[in-house]
Each structure stands twice: as C-alpha cells, then as structure tokens.
Amino acid sequence: MNLLGLFRPPPMDPLLQVVSGVPIFRDCNRAELEALKLHLHERNFLAGEIVFDEGEDGEGMYVVIRGKLRANRKGILTKKSLGVIQAGESFGEMALLGAGPRMATVVAEEDTTVLAMFRPELVALAQARPRLGYKIAMGVALVLESRLRRFADGQSTEPSAT
C-alpha cells in the first residue's frame, strides 16, 4: 500500500480542469478554482438553441465544456458570422465589466454544455477574495487585449466577439 498516496490531494473535478485551461482563469490556483466552483452554473443547450441575443443585457460569461457554438452579428443586410467557439473557450466576458448589451448572438451548433458565471456572484467572490478578483480582472483584460490586437493586425473583423 502506498502510504504517500494518502497525502496526495484528490484529483481535480473535470469541470474545473476545463476552467483552469481558460485564459481568464489560467493563473488561479486550485483553492481559488474550488471557490469559483460554487458559483459555476452548468447549462445544457440543444443544437440550434440560442444562448443569448445580440443587444440583450449581458449578466455573465460562459465557458464551453463540450460542444460547439457560433457567434453571429447582425450586418446591415445580412447576418455576419464572427466565428466558432469550441470546448475550452469562453465567451461573453464583456458582461463581467458591466451590464452593457451583448455584442453578438450566440447559438449552439451542436448539443453543448457550458458553465455560466454571473457577474454579481463573481464580483462578490472577488470582494471576499481580492487576490482571486485581481487575477480574474487581469484575465479579462488580457483576453480583450489579445482580441484588440488581432483586430488591429487585421486578423479579425470585430474588436470583440461577444
């Protein structure tokens, strides 16, 4: 019997493993991710179901656990696809910064599982754990910075996906 195994922490929740790979939460340690877990809401969407609409007030962000979604934005005449959101990616981060309108409509392309994080809950968590709050705020800032850079470099036609 391997006695040292008793002192090893139990394996991480698979959902948290996905969350830990998302750029916004990459710097969070295990204790912080466990605290975050209490505020994650798992939602299942069927293929063709809308997660949120463009122009709707945004209240939180999502992390894709399984499946695939598409972000669309209304053009002057036709709908414009902004791209596909895959498992392990996040969307709707702008809503963490304020209750502004959503910048795109996100539709599930196949049966999809996401983890939703609600802004007021994350704000309360950040107030209780300022270090975690700082990491999340920096994470959001870095994601937005990379999107702006891609837009400036001409690799993307929109400064922000959602």
């Binding site: 809401h41 939602r43 299942n44 969407f45 179901e49 809308i50 997660v51 949120f52 209240e59 609600f118």
Partner: peptide
C-alpha cells in the same frame, strides 16, 4: 437555479440577485 429554463436563466439570476 438548475430548474430554470435556459431562456430565462440570466434574467432569473438577476431576479435572485
């Protein structure tokens, strides 16, 4: 909140808050 349909989820979260 798990019992709330997807369409009303964000609004319901806001209601609770």
């Amino acid at each position: 909140l798990r019992a709330v349909p997807n369409a009303f989820f964000e609004k319901t979260l806001l209601l609770f808050d």
